[in-house]
Design a protein around this nucleic acid. Sequence first.
RNA 1: GUGGGUAUAGCUCAACUCGGUUAGAGCGCUUGCCUGUGGAGCAAGAUGUUGCCGGUUCAAAUCCGGUUACCCACCCCA
Length: 430
Amino acid sequence: MNSKLQTLQGMHDRLPDNMKKRQWVIQRITSVFEKYGFEPMETPAIEYWEILSGKDVYGDEEKLIYKFQDRGRRDVGMRFDFTVPLARVVSSYPDITMPFKRYQIQTVWRCDKPQYGRFREFYQCDVDIVGTESVIAEAELIMVVSEIFEAVGFKKFMTKINSRRLLQTICEYSGVDKSKEFELFRAMDKRDRIGIDGVKENFEVLGLSKETKEKIISSLGQPIAQLEKLLPNKEGIAQVRTLFSHLENLGCNMKHIMFDPWLSRGFDYYTGPIFETIIEGTKVGSVAGGGRYDNLIGKFNDKDIPAVGISIGLERVLMVMDKLDMNPKFASPVKFLVTLFDDPTTKYALQVAKDIRNSGVGVEVYPEAIKIGKQFKYASRKKIPFVVITGPDEFKTHSVAIKDMKSGTQEVIKLAKLNTWLQKKLEIRK
RNA sequence: GUGGGUAUAGCUCAACUCGGUUAGAGCGCUUGCCUGUGGAGCAAGAUGUUGCCGGUUCAAAUCCGGUUACCCACCCCA
């Protein structure tokens, strides 16, 4: 309860219970990533301030970057996301194989005010494809996210898809000034929370004409086929159609996918298709989001390199799993606890531990010869399935007593037969 | 960054409104029944600078100010 022992605002210790869940989820995420040919990458926690801020990638969000001077009085900042580090990497290693498919799972820092589902230090899982304009890239990413949420065990999730290109076309068609486009997108993005009427109110502030407002609202209400007839420029629609067709051909479960013309996303740098995944029945917001950003990397190296990426909010995924009570049961990697009886038999206990461990399973040795009951309790708490006793009786008869903690039964096994016994047990467990 | 709420035992909370003996309960924990066996049962035991700093008062968990953290809403986002 010493206040000096507190962690910083919005930052948390991650104790074993949390880490086991986290790693369980990460393991599922990476195995899907790798199945699609994405490779791991990491970048430093701290970057030059100029890299983080110089290209005006984040806009207003820039104020949320942790910024300070290091001991050499360099202006530096903490990694805010993985998009800028990726752009830096792609720009500084020109011989990287394109298309570059990498994933990055690390913490990022945002100096935000903590709230439900919102922290100052949190894990993100980014997966990006750099160097192709093909919509197949988008389809793969959406597919990957879908597979991940299925693998983790979610039943009701939805990836909403839209296209910035399409939204721009709607803006042109409705007569929205180019300079007001992005503000309009932000207003639209709130529809889920404040409803269409709320969005209309927000449109007021933008000073749009009545005709323009009505055109926008009615366009957004149209089914995709109607929109296509309505709009002079078909490029955005074509993009969405191609994406859906690729998804179907890739075998995506389409019940988790929908077209949502209202989706717009908060970052300015998206240029093409955009997407966002939510888990139904939770108020945590989106658990994954991304899109195409063809002009961003060019800001770093003056070459136009197209890219598309998506980010999974691991913290939020874990929160939702807790909420929906879908936490996985973990089997302990340690299958045997070798108890310590007294000094004279310690040597024997350690040798037995070695023998069992050599058969390929995890073994813990209790480090002190305390009351045997306590050692059993320890095994019970750590969910270790077998407890091994190597006391004077066992030592004399060259045997070990092994108790199955689940059934409560115990058997005495001769050392000479221990190996075959282990093999039999391990077979059964497979 | 703006506004509101909360902070009491390891955990969940009570007592605070209206200041007044020794700050309680459940769960967990320790010990014993059981000197070679966890979970169930019974019995006993220990919990604490009431987040921190200061003020008011004969007297503060309780009232006031500050501070730190957490929760909620906005902003925005994963």
